[in-house]
Design a protein around this nucleic acid. Structure first.
Lengths: 93, 93
DNA sequence: TATTTTGGTTTATAATATAAACTATTTTAT
DNA sequence: ATAAAATAGTTTATATTATAAACCAAAATA
């Protein structure tokens, strides 16, 4: 009962980012900003943490002359998310 | 979409405490310690925060010659918890 | 009566979230 | 042509928060 919640996912912004990516579609930096309304600095830091953990994949490219940062969830990220949700259920029901 | 999560509840230990109290039964300090395995100092601090927010009621008494701290969730606490769960659902499904 | 146990609180520290300040490139206005 | 503004971020400093260590008081026990 009350297993530890993965601290990497138990953060509003990181959870939102991963939640967005759990659709399976990749999303880019701007979409994350639009949806979450967080500052770019905050998003940048949280993306790096998720990347370092191997939860997301980050692909940098050029799109219409501008740099573009695209994010995609990894298998590890999917498993971590599913595990987080399972653990959380113990707390909220 | 992605409404803010009540920061008072979006904390593993405080969420566990409120979750325990959501049964309706009151629980005392020791039960919280047994269930959560957190340190007394940590629990003490988090209890005060929940009390200050009006989410729980704290009743101090004497039981078998020892001081006893009993906790009970308030109506405000119940509503906050239910709202938290509703908001969380946007993130986890 | 000295020591240990019970039941906590207060305070210091470690970790974390968040925004402010900064960098670099591109577009637009003058 | 070039100054200003917009795009797309990163780095770093600060503010907040979680957590444990240190502490206190009363009761039980050796």
């Amino acid at each position: 009962m009350y297993k530890d919640l993965d601290p990497l996912l138990h953060s509003q912004l990181r959870l939102a980012i991963v939640s967005i990516l759990m659709t399976g579609e990749s999303a880019d930096f701007n979409q994350i900003m639009d949806i979450t309304k967080a500052t770019s600095g905050n998003i940048s830091v949280q993306i790096k943490k998720l990347q370092d953990a191997g939860y997301i994949e980050v692909v940098k490219s050029f799109k219409n002359n501008y740099q573009n940062t695209a994010l995609k969830i990894t298998n590890k990220g999917i498993k971590a998310f599913e595990n987080y949700v399972e653990c959380l259920k113990q707390y909220i029901k």
